[in-house]
Write a protein that binds this DNA or RNA. Structure first.
Lengths: 116, 116
DNA sequence: ACCTTGCGCAACCAAACGTTGCGCTTCCGC
DNA sequence: GCGGAAGCGCAACGTTTGGTTGCGCAAGGT
């Protein structure tokens, strides 16, 4: 049973990027380099406080890092950690694709057998 | 701004596969071909009812299809839809990777400029 | 006929996402 | 220096969602 099922997905990371709002925030941070709870909330349909909470979550799992600057608190994406997250996404997608491929091959084999 | 941000991710699909329990269920269904709420719940740390609800969600977004068989209700993965979902996962992962690559290149360019 | 097996429905709990409201610090203009 | 605006943090609250228990009902096996 080499095709192991154990994706051993880091569950905290997954649930962090599982939320659509947080994904959107990461996108914005990637595009603009950095941002604060206020600036991000202005480009999204949620309040500053909601964004602040999400930033807290992202910070806790290490996907972003904060640097206080006067009365502001600028956040930046931690590139290494996001790269890990991206890898996990791709890996799950690829795993499913692989299984689907196998099923397809088996189905074709049966088809061929039946045509004898 | 050619590198569009619009990943246009189908939000219902995402939230369906965003849940770890549902991902696990899809894995089991792929491995065993099909299953019922009861059989799946026996291989997971949740109750049959919880599994049944999740199956309802997966059915609503089209990731699985049910075929009543006597007193049982067997579920099977809809391969086309799962393929779509897998593609979305990979695509988001790749999009992030691409942006990270760009940032890295820019950083290196600045580095080089500074070394003159 | 009876008992088991499998499903569906309803009530209830806890955690998560989002809101509003308030108070505190920091900066800017006068 | 002082007053107002800009940002942030904290707390209370409502709603949705993942999970549980408990029950009743239909389908099969003996």
């Amino acid at each position: 049973m080499s095709a192991a099922l154990a994706e051993k997905v880091d569950d905290d990371l997954w649930s962090a990027i599982g939320d659509p709002t947080r994904r959107r925030m990461l996108d914005l941070l990637l595009i603009e380099g950095d941002g604060t709870a206020t600036t991000l909330s202005q480009q999204m349909p949620v309040t500053r406080q909601a964004v602040a909470k999400h930033l807290g979550v992202l910070d806790r799992v290490g996907l972003v890092r904060a640097t206080p600057a006067g009365r502001e608190k600028r956040y930046r994406v931690d590139e290494a950690q996001l790269a890990r997250a991206a890898a996990q996404l791709s890996s799950v997608g690829l795993a499913w694709d692989a299984r689907l491929q196998r099923i397809k091959r088996i189905a074709e084999a049966i088809q061929r057998t039946r045509q004898d």
